[in-house]
Amino acid sequence: MQNKITQKSKIFLMLIFIFVLIENKVHSEDKIIQIEVLEERSQKIYKEIRCLVCQNQSIEDSNAGLAKQIKLIVKELIIKGYTDKEVHNYLVDRYGNWILLKPPFNTSTAALWLLPFAILLLAIFSGTFYILKKNKFKKKMPVIPLEHDEQKKLNKILDDF
């Protein structure tokens, strides 16, 4: 009887042990995935943030102290549960839109974003207009027949050829 109980409890203990092992493994895998996601998200954000010291470099490329510190802050914010947009806003609140390598579209940047397309359209319109006009002009022009001596010259050239 006594023996049976210990047998049972042994099995029970073993089961617990196995369960803890599996649970631990799953948990650590979860952690690894979490770290990978964090890494991926922060890397993406690094590329979009301008380094304030080495301007025109992203904080990912920069070795400046401030860039390193902002990288840490980005990670901190992600861990706190900020979305990518919220991380951007956090930095923009402190350093202005300037810190984003890709300027957002708003009233002050409308010209920057739209002017290239406007110029392209203008070029297409004026180009087609010019070609159409030229063709029309050509069609209207009567073909003047060659003078007698001109025809002679042309014939001579063609013969020599």
Binding site: L52, L66, Q69, I70, R94
Partner: peptide, 13 residues
């Protein structure tokens, strides 16, 4: 010491 408050102030140099 660590420049954290300076970042909140938007200081970059």
């Amino acid at each position: 010491l660590d420049g954290r408050i300076s970042i909140d102030f938007g200081v970059y140099g």
